[in-house]
Design a protein around this nucleic acid. Structure first.
Length: 495
RNA sequence: GAGCCGCUAGCUCAGGAGGUAGAGCAUCUGCCUUUUAAGUAGAGGGUCCCGGGUUCGAGUCCCGGGCGGCUCACCA
């Protein structure tokens, strides 16, 4: 990274000249007294005359975003974490050192300190008349263009710092992300949940059906897996008597990337003893309505062309019922694996040859039903084969007490009443091992300690996982998961 | 992994049917003491993603590769 085009050379020369004068080019002794937004808000009503009568002084630090020189005066904008403030420098009015510094040394992009007094310009903008200017850090590279900003998505993701400097809506998205996570945390703490952290490096990657990343511990000389879900550890805590726990954290899945998938992603998982999946539907409605109210001020959220309405209650839709509606097959016909497979073939949906009926139903569902579920919808009653950790339905043991929440055509949450019968759990694990032997790399591994934990008795419990990145996408109107992850995974930059 | 699209100055983008590469902003030199996409006169700035090929001649056409985006496949 040593490319030296003209603009970099010019800036380096300015820095060298400053050093030659004996100045400290990277001082760290400046203390801002205000932020731009704090001043703009507090003095929003102050007139030019008010400001003139009691000239208020302030000290701000930030990055120069634009400069308008003309003759013996200049205006420029400084951007700090809160926003932008205009600064005015005028020969004969500001000290000569400030005038010279601005003219000879400062460029757009530089981080500077400004001290001065506030006034209002003819156009009514609150502005600092500089009494002192200092360079705090020289930008040796020019910023992207002021009007079009930074458009190249590759550069935006690879050099997110630039994206954050020049694209205000990006800063806003990540502020909203932080706010949403904070609100979620508050929501569960208010309901007497305990926030916990469980291992991200695990000897058995359990709790979901996915391919894990493998790493190696040198001292122990064992392979470890980056977790694909925290589920089994959180339920161990339920066995341990925690009764209500939640974790917000990173999961890792060694699978494809897309606008909806990043190899590492953030989930919320929460477990509540003595609750059922049915109660979690109500809790989920409450959570989303709360988030919508706090973030957009209404239960309605704009997402692309759609307006999503989170006003409870949301529809409950049986998985097979939904499939029946979309495929024309009757509920009985959906029990016939050959009919289901034939239908999938007719619709161009690929189903692995070894997949059991339940898996086939799930595949078909993903292809023909999911895209239609725009408004928040709970899909209920999943086949037991695709839910090895969920409690069987009392009336029909081929299905489990599980729901998935769909919004904007994608899965946002997955929840079920937990399987707490250790013998059934062991049996389910063994069935998964057979799937694995048959070539399904995503089948669940056998976790003997988890079965042992269940043998000590786990209270009846319901648990849920919510994809935080996807949730943030919904509330920030972001079309790609990369827009809500600060540093999305990218292929290595070729040099 | 497959298909489609993109990659040209620091940034945003033009380059018709192959003929030695352009604009705006930015930069540099001037003028300009309330501007805000300031104005104004001039100047400099290019590995046209990389490597082959066709051709007298390739940013442009062909082949291969790289990186990215979108769609599909798998998943949350």
């Amino acid at each position: 990274m040593t490319e030296e085009h003209e603009q970099i050379l010019v800036r380096k020369q300015k820095l060298a000249a400053l050093k030659a004068q004996g100045a400290q080019p990277y001082p760290n002794d400046f203390v801002p007294t205000h932020t731009a937004a704090a001043l703009l808000t507090r003095l929003a009503e102050a007139t030019a005359e008010d400001l003139e009568q009691h000239a208020e002084s302030c000290a701000l630090a930030g990055r120069i975003m634009s400069i308008r020189h003309f003759g013996k005066a200049a205006f420029f904008h400084v951007q700090d974490r809160s926003g932008q403030m205009q600064v005015y420098v005028r020969q004969g009015d500001s000290p000569p050192e400030a005038v010279v510094l601005l003219k000879d040394t400062l460029d757009v992009g530089d981080v500077i300190a400004v001290s001065g007094t506030l006034f209002r310009t003819r156009t009514g903008e609150l502005t600092i008349k500089a009494t002192a200017l200092r360079l705090l850090s020289k930008a040796l590279r020019p910023l992207p263009e002021k009007w079009h900003g930074l458009q190249d998505v590759e550069v935006r993701y690879r050099q997110r710092y630039l994206d954050l400097i020049v694209n205000p809506q990006v800063r806003e998205t990540f502020r909203k992300r932080a706010k949403l996570i904070q609100l979620i945390r508050q929501f569960f703490i208010d309901r007497d949940y305990l926030e916990v952290e469980t291992p991200t490096m695990q000897t058995i990657a359990g709790g979901a059906l996915a391919r894990p990343f493998v790493t190696h511990h040198n001292t122990l000389d064992i392979d470890l897996y980056l977790r694909i879900a925290p589920e089994l550890f959180l339920k161990r805590l339920i066995v341990g008597g925690a009764e209500r726990v939640f974790e917000i954290g990173r999961n890792f899945r060694n699978e494809g990337m897309s606008t909806k998938h990043n190899p590492e992603f953030t989930t919320l998982e929460f477990y509540e003893a003595y609750a059922t999946y049915d109660q979690l539907m109500a809790l989920t409605e409450e959570l989303f309505a709360f988030l919508a109210r706090q973030v957009t001020g209404s239960p309605q959220v704009r997402y692309g062309e759609q307006t999503l309405d989170f006003t409870p209650p949301w529809p409950r839709l049986g998985m097979k019922e939904a499939l029946s509606q979309q495929t024309g097959l009757s509920l009985d016909e959906l029990d016939d694996e050959s009919l289901v497979r034939a239908k999938a073939r007719a619709l161009g949906v690929h189903i692995p040859a070894a997949a059991p009926l339940g898996k086939a139903l799930e595949e078909l569902f993903g292809a023909v039903v999911e895209p239609h579920l725009i408004q928040p919808t709970f899909v209920v009653s999943y086949p037991v084969e695709v839910s090895p950790l969920a409690r069987r339905n009392d009336a029909d043991p081929r299905f489990v007490d599980r729901f998935e929440l769909y919004v904007a055509g994608r899965e946002i949450a997955n929840a079920f009443s937990e399987l707490n019968d250790p013998e059934d759990q062991l049996q389910r694990f063994l069935e998964q091992l057979q799937e694995r032997a048959a070539g399904d790399e995503e089948a669940h591994a056998l976790d003997e300690d988890y079965v042992r934990a269940l043998e000590y008795g786990m209270p009846p419990t319901a648990g849920e996982g919510i994809g935080i990145d996807r949730l943030v996408m919904l509330f920030t109107d972001s079309p790609s998961i990369r827009d809500v992850i600060l540093f999305p995974q990218m292929r290595a930059e070729k040099k």
